[in-house]
Design a protein around this nucleic acid. Structure first.
Lengths: 213, 213
DNA sequence: CAGTATCCCTGCTGATACTG
DNA sequence: CAGTATCAGCAGGGATACTG
């Protein structure tokens, strides 16, 4: 722990000593969506070496950020209250990074958990407050995300469910949110494929989730 | 840039690719206080190797976070508007880390810039709004900080100036803010030494700046 | 003062193998 | 499945010396 010591006493140095190591904050990000098992974390972070995941989990546990919790025969990792207090940090950092995001290259995956947190980052309660309750279903590579907006409240769940608009096209959502591409243009260009529902609802989606570059 | 690539497309991974390297966010922190010269940055980050400082500055410049700016014969580094948008991130992260901060060890320095940002993190506008305008002067190891609170507005400047309360005791301020020690206790124990003004104003200080653990 | 150059070493990576 | 263990290769960080 001496190696990562910054030799300075301040809030940020302390924070960075706890969650500044490579991969650490991404583990926190995924756990902000919900408790996860070891294999789920590994699946959501495709490039993390398994030994690094194991050591990070141990370090974050010692730091009081997360805990191992037995859940009916299996172990899950979940954030402690202290760890959950990182939510504003992760959301703010995600919002900032989002603005500097070029188009996703093909070799870059989009995990359900990362997309969930990106949606939370980009959610505009003020803009959503005036709109009718809407449920969107977004199909990613393998998973499906059920996004329910009701006034200023947002709920993102994994798995299928009844939705007003069902669409496909994982990596185009990012370009929608940054405003890089217009919703209807995304549909006509085939970047977003509407599977069910009125395609015009994609405009509402793009109004609800937005981060200007 | 391939090494630090997380192989995932999301706001947070992008952010971490830009400012996730060791020392990077500390440079941003100090520049949030104001433009700084190379030597000033080095002085504020006592343990940073000079080659690392040089590469970080280059990388952050390429990332569009900061720029080199000529100021009458000397070069200063200053944040771009994009870089300045990291302020909420740094404040939130600092507030979080602050709560996990044990007492500062002696070998840990407290730089004026880090203290300035810690004060900004811990400032409670709601609590300060009802209090009369107050100026505090805090003497650190070498420098002096002039902290002016006027209603919900906070201004922290370097250097001396007229203050209602002048006190000394850099590392005790942190313990004051976390509530680890009571203001009057800090004075009687000699952790904070009042140089001028009414020592009771330290209570007001501790009300204005607070981060519960 | 504002960096550049050099060298050593730690930690991360990536692959794979193993265990309860 | 949920990890632990091991290991070779390498990039980044640390310490220090050096330069315009």
């Amino acid at each position: 722990m001496a190696a990562r010591d910054y030799g300075q006493s301040s809030g940020i140095t302390r924070a960075l000593e706890l969650i500044g190591e490579r991969w650490a904050l991404l583990i926190v990000r995924d756990l902000l969506v919900g408790p996860r098992r070891y294999g789920e974390l590994a699946a959501g972070l495709p490039r993390i070496p398994t030994n690094i995941l194991a050591s990070r989990l141990k370090e974050l546990q010692e730091a009081g950020v997360l805990r191992r919790a037995p859940r009916s025969r299996v172990i899950v990792y979940e954030l402690t209250p202290f760890g959950r207090e990182l939510e504003p940090v992760v959301l703010a950092l995600g919002a900032w990074g989002f603005k500097a995001m070029g188009g996703a290259r093909d070799e870059q995956a989009i995990s359900p958990d990362s997309m969930t947190m990106d949606l939370r980052s980009a959610f505009r309660p003020e803009a959503a407050a005036g709109l009718p309750p809407t449920a969107y279903a977004a199909r990613l590579d393998a998973a499906e995300l059920l996004i329910r907006v009701d006034g200023p409240a947002l709920d993102v769940q994994r798995g299928p469910g009844p939705a007003d608009l069902v669409f496909e096209g994982g990596r185009a959502i990012h370009r929608l949110i940054t405003g890089e591409i217009a919703p209807q243009r995304a549909i006509t260009d085939g970047l977003v494929r509407v599977r069910s529902g009125d395609g015009l609802l994609l405009d509402r989606f793009a109004t609800t989730f937005r981060l200007a570059a």
